[in-house]
Design a protein around this nucleic acid. Structure first.
Lengths: 335, 335
DNA sequence: CTGTTAGCGCCTTCAA
DNA sequence: TTGAAGGCGCTAACAG
């Protein structure tokens, strides 16, 4: 049924070792022999079996990617960066959604390892002791992507979420705002949640602005929760003049909430966030936000992983990509 | 270094066949023996090698997915549906972006087949003779996802793009519009492009409205091209009263373009599209659009593939999922 | 219920 | 430059 390297060898009148050599571009083959083999391959429609190759060579040229949710635009962008670079280096990726749920993360890490991936890219929630344990039993390199572990033991590429939030809030302050509300993600989430919230607090502190917990609402990163949170803020006896949202989506929700209340952005309330997803310029007013280079995070982490897999020396095992505030039209000065 | 089934067998004092049985949940093992084996596995930290298993059993429990672009929200949604169902049936997916470029599609189909995937999910541009050829050499089932082939030879799950467009335009007509413009995708694209354009034309014809090629612009599915196209329409001596966009993103671009020109949606110009991506409710006015069940398309096609892989009987090899016009606020009656 | 024995398709020394 | 032979780790009859 299936044609094997052995069939090709017989057809070409050589040994299977020789066929293996030409298939793997080993230079030690006489051009004429190589030609004969290629012809036999063509004639038989031979297709190398990567599984057999993987078993024999102990390399599968596939890497495992655990991602929170591929239908989330932010992660999808990272995934695209990963895949592009993987493709460039002739790797394929096995993609697993894990929704930042620890048990599921651990489970997929293990199946990925069973599948003998040559490396692992982990993008998830908090990196716990259990994760570290799982990574240790992997005999392949692991790199964290858009997240980091506490002790920085594992190679990682990320942005500085806290600084990004800090810069966003500073931008608001620089525009004269002092009554600044925040729509945060869950504080359980180390990067999008806790770090950004902490950046917010630190920026206030740095300016001697008292932290007011009435000015903080916890959302779920989605549009609707931005709408809700902003509605809450607008009903406060003394409403904030600016809102910092942990994600673009919540910021857009906030903008619409403000507009629905008959107010204007940024005239009455300014809005800023962090992400700079493509949606940021797909609202009116266009959203001022701190750009995270998601595609690059994916690309760079995959590139780092390829180096690790080839046992090449890497200068730094932890790389922080720069963020940047993108000024558009949702932040205004205080009258 | 690596612990194999053989090590476990020795440790547990049984044969490797027995270990294989307990690992594969074969019932023909005495509970007591099973326990011994589990303990040995635990003690040694044994992890089954899926590659070796794949070679021996000729099954890899992984399916290949070729997708145009994972960073596109629409496809990402489909991918999520695929992965969820795959996961449910204990399959993993190898994901390859192919950007609807034929050569790349053919190339990844072949690497996927080399990797001995148990099945293939194809989501791409036109299905050409070459594709059919590649599918034929695959010894595994293939299902088309969100696309179809001309002759309907290959199992597929899709929506009826032409009908969806037809219904969108009919909705406009029902609201009294007769001067209806369209922002189309490239006519080279069979589903999002050609089919939707054709649905538009057919709806006009059905009402005896003359087709005017000045009222059609070709976009690239993205926001910016929607902005551009709408701008063009507004500058026409006799501007259309309604715009049908082939995708939500272009529709949102059109809405903003109209608003930027000082006009109101839907008071001055109505806008409708097809997709119903999450963004549709993230604009003001919220977008009236024809819903395509993207997640379901992914889920159903993966489910169909599992049946095919298990050689189960399938009632219909081609399933068309229903679309539905979702009425929100971007379409109004003609004054 | 358990063990023995062949492969699965390919890579990789080691010789020639 | 080429061939022979021994695995890679596991599954799947076939016996017992």
């Amino acid at each position: 049924m299936t044609v094997t390297i052995y069939d090709v060898a017989r057809e070409a009148g050589v040994s299977m070792a020789t066929v293996s050599r030409v298939v793997n571009n080993n230079p030690n083959v006489k051009p004429q022999t190589r030609k004969k083999v290629y012809e036999a391959i063509e004639r038989l429609g031979y297709r190398p079996n990567a599984v057999a190759r993987g078993l024999a060579s102990k390399k599968t040229t596939t890497v495992g990617v655990v991602i929170p949710d591929i239908s989330n635009a932010i992660f999808a962008e990272v995934a695209r960066g990963i895949e592009d670079i993987a493709n460039m280096y002739h790797y394929n990726i096995i993609l697993c959604n894990a929704d930042k749920r620890k048990e599921k993360e651990i489970r997929v890490i293990n199946t990925l390892l069973e599948k003998q991936v040559d490396g692992l890219l982990f993008m998830g929630g908090a990196v716990t002791e259990e994760h570290l344990q799982a990574f240790k039993t992997a005999n392949v390199p692991v790199v964290l992507c858009a997240t980091s572990d506490e002790n920085g033991q594992i190679p990682a590429v990320d942005i500085n979420h806290e600084e990004a939030a800090f810069d966003a809030v500073k931008t608001l302050i620089a525009n004269g705002h002092r009554k600044i509300a925040m729509i945060s993600g869950t504080l359980q989430d180390p990067s999008n949640g806790y770090a950004r919230f902490h950046g917010y607090k630190r920026a206030l502190e740095a300016e001697g602005i008292a932290y007011d917990e009435d000015l903080v609402r916890i959302g779920n990163y989605r549009y609707e929760s931005g709408v809700e949170a902003a509605k809450y803020f607008l009903e406060l006896s003394e409403r904030p003049t600016a809102i910092f949202a942990a994600t673009d989506e919540m910021a857009i929700g906030a903008i619409h909430s403000i507009q629905d209340a008959g107010l204007k952005v940024p005239d009455h309330v300014s809005v800023i966030s962090v992400d700079n997803s493509r949606m940021a310029s797909m609202v009116r007013p266009q959203l001022t936000t701190v750009a995270q280079p998601m595609y690059d995070i994916g690309a760079v982490s995959m590139r780092l992983l390829t180096k690790l897999m080839k046992k090449e020396a890497v200068d730094q095992a932890k790389v922080i990509l720069p963020h940047e505030v993108i000024t558009r039209n949702s932040v205004g000065g205080l009258a």
